[in-house]
Design a protein around this nucleic acid. Sequence first.
DNA 1: AAGATATCGTTGCAAACGCAACGAGGTCAA
DNA 2: TTGACCTCGTTGCGTTTGCAACGATATCTT
Lengths: 141, 141
Amino acid sequence: MTEFKLDQFLPYQIVVLARRLSVGLAEIYSDKYGLTVSEWRVLAHLHDAGTCSVREIHLQADLEKSRVSRAVARLEARDLVVRAAHSGDKRLLVLALSPAGSKLVEEILPQALSFQAEVLGELEDAEGFQTAIRTLLNRDD
Amino acid sequence: MTEFKLDQFLPYQIVVLARRLSVGLAEIYSDKYGLTVSEWRVLAHLHDAGTCSVREIHLQADLEKSRVSRAVARLEARDLVVRAAHSGDKRLLVLALSPAGSKLVEEILPQALSFQAEVLGELEDAEGFQTAIRTLLNRDD
DNA sequence: AAGATATCGTTGCAAACGCAACGAGGTCAA
DNA sequence: TTGACCTCGTTGCGTTTGCAACGATATCTT
């Protein structure tokens, strides 16, 4: 009989860890600001990108394009994001943060960063851990 | 303006990694054997535990009890799991793998383990990585 | 021993999900 | 320039999800 402990199985451990971190982070962007994961990622990416299309967020933020589309619609309804037509290619949307959106993101980011710091702070070799994560993320794409 | 790159943000990286590993693993238990994540976890835990209740799987395998309940129902319909009443406490269910279930798990496990080995093989310091994961998983519970 | 409380597994339901299909617009070749 | 093909963002739809509520059983309290 093959020896196998689910709780020592790496893919399982990482999925569990991911869920825990998500729940922890959600206490910030969801409980305090009423944002979903999709919305938070859209805002975060726009903060960095300045301006971009739905497709770019889909690719850069690991979100189904339908999730991006609906998240953007909700964010626009809350006046956190501005949606405009691209002048050159009319298929594209030009998304950007509104002033209120920028303000909101600036309010959330420090908290997100401190959450990250708190997590990393528990590790002996935080550097090595981050390198490992990056290594795994860069495989096969 | 706060500096923030979503793709360098640890919680995000781990969620993305978790999804990738899940998809990779699913090529084994889902594509080849038609199992869902919930079903796979139930089988894996039963393989190790021998016999247990819905609640125990709920706690040990990080699954909502409704997911366990439904997964068990499907597995029983496929004759992979046996569901019996507990003699002492009639609220409890006694779950166990059927012979066919055992056989199936024995077939899958080596593939799961080799998938894990493949992932760990890409890391310089696999030991350190696993230690870090365990550290993070043991916080606050 | 009886009533209040807690726990077990199941079920109902609203919301979220992923995927496929769509219309609108762009690109490329002949 | 016209037709085939590709890409963009949105929408529809069946499935899955998490949560709350439920009936049944156990336990605790007095």
